[in-house]
Nucleic acid binder design. Structure first.
Lengths: 226, 226
DNA sequence: GCCGCGCGGTGGGATACGTCACAATGACTG
DNA sequence: CAGTCATTGTGACGTATCCCACCGCGCGGC
């Protein structure tokens, strides 16, 4: 997929007509990272927003004692790093490439005139943030009410929605996460996540592959997640 | 405090000069609820945003099995119900009065012209949502990394910041929550929260009063929360 | 091609917390 | 003013999950 098509799916650009979008693109800078590289770290000052063009990137926070948790895993078309832009404070998460990744970056100064001149852009961004807030509240409720296997199932289904591809015997979800990272994403220890996955595989609901799973029984996995 | 002073603290109005704010006030409707009354419920369609003028209100979600959790407790100057406005979907939480409460309500149709015409208002709202998202991410991390007593301490300190008043021997935090509600706020059972509070009181860090606590040793309570 | 190390897999305590059960206290109501 | 109901306080018990320890595998580097 080419750059324009991917950008068109991002909320920032969705609101713009073709010419406006083309104009905005002139102030965009492209960044590429290879797997494992850090784009930015917690506590840095940040005044850039990014859209993933290709590949995957993770947003992660580190607790004072060194333990980590993942806020999200982002793929093509998804936006991040905008909080420091709307609310000028240091970054509250680090962004690290899960695969080789290509990004579109847009600075505060480039964006501001677009926001003040085009109210429909601001409205789209408000909507994007509102959706994120809803989503985050859902995750929060899951942490309180759902057990680890349930959260693992939920996370896999979510990843399947965004990254899944149909193959003959199911849906291949190439999440590009180690089990350690998957554990950080659902807020549990690697061991318990491993056991949950093993249990699901045992029941025939999915097959485990390297940094991926193939979902074989969507129905039951979905039931387990509720 | 009078209505204008309270509204001035809300992000929606903070961006406006005096005349603009006065003009916007003409489209505001005032609502009063008595303790225990419901302003709106989950799954209702909602196109109104509210600012608390006086009293306290809680935002709560109900899981399919009936268990509840509180998203937040809001006091004077704080805004809520805006998500359904920026992202037109049913409400994802119910709003219930903790005390007798007076609210300013503003409808979608009234607000939109203000957003499109005044980019600084949209920017302020983006900032408010960005702050909320950061906050929610913090709470999320606490659920993963902090034990129940720690979360209770954190919640009390937060409530103290917003509702605390200095008295001779400490800070009185009149939160207007039952222990059940406090438990729902920190994502734990009532019993565990009760025991944590008893332990804190035992250590002389605080004194328990009806729907309130008096914080006696801010220092240690703060240490316990980290 | 061998070695090392990151990653995946699995078992066995230890424990924080939820659930249950019940008593004591306080607040509202007829 | 009595009685009822909500709220608080506290113990016993079961268990999900964390933490630790260890093993095997495979991949990448030297």
């Amino acid at each position: 997929m080419n750059t324009d098509d991917v950008l068109g799916k991002a909320p920032l650009f969705a609101a713009l007509d073709r010419e406006s979008a083309a104009a905005l693109r002139t102030s965009i800078s492209e960044v590429t990272l290879s797997k494992g590289q850090t784009l930015f770290s917690e506590n840095e000052t940040g005044d850039r927003l990014y859209v993933v063009l290709e590949g995957k990137i993770k947003l992660s926070r580190t607790a004072p004692d060194g333990r980590e948790n993942l806020l999200s895993v982002l793929g093509p078309g998804e936006m991040f790093g905008e909080l420091s832009l709307f609310d000028p404070r240091p970054r509250t998460a680090s962004a690290i490439a899960l695969t080789d990744v290509r990004l579109a970056g847009l600075g505060h100064d480039d964006l501001r005139p677009w926001l003040t001149g085009r109210p429909e852009v601001a409205l789209h961004l408000l909507r994007a943030l509102a959706q994120r807030l809803r989503r985050t509240n859902d995750v929060l409720a899951d942490l309180v009410f759902t057990d680890v296997p349930g959260r693992v199932a939920k996370a896999l289904l979510d990843l399947a929605d965004r990254f899944g591809q149909r193959i003959d015997d199911g849906i291949r979800v190439h999440h590009d996460l180690t089990q350690e990272e998957l554990a950080q994403l659902v807020g549990a220890s690697r061991e318990t996540v491993n056991k949950a996955l093993a249990d699901f595989a045992q029941r025939g609901w999915l097959r485990i592959e390297a940094k991926a799973v193939v979902i074989l029984d969507l129905e039951r996995l979905h039931n387990r997640s509720r």
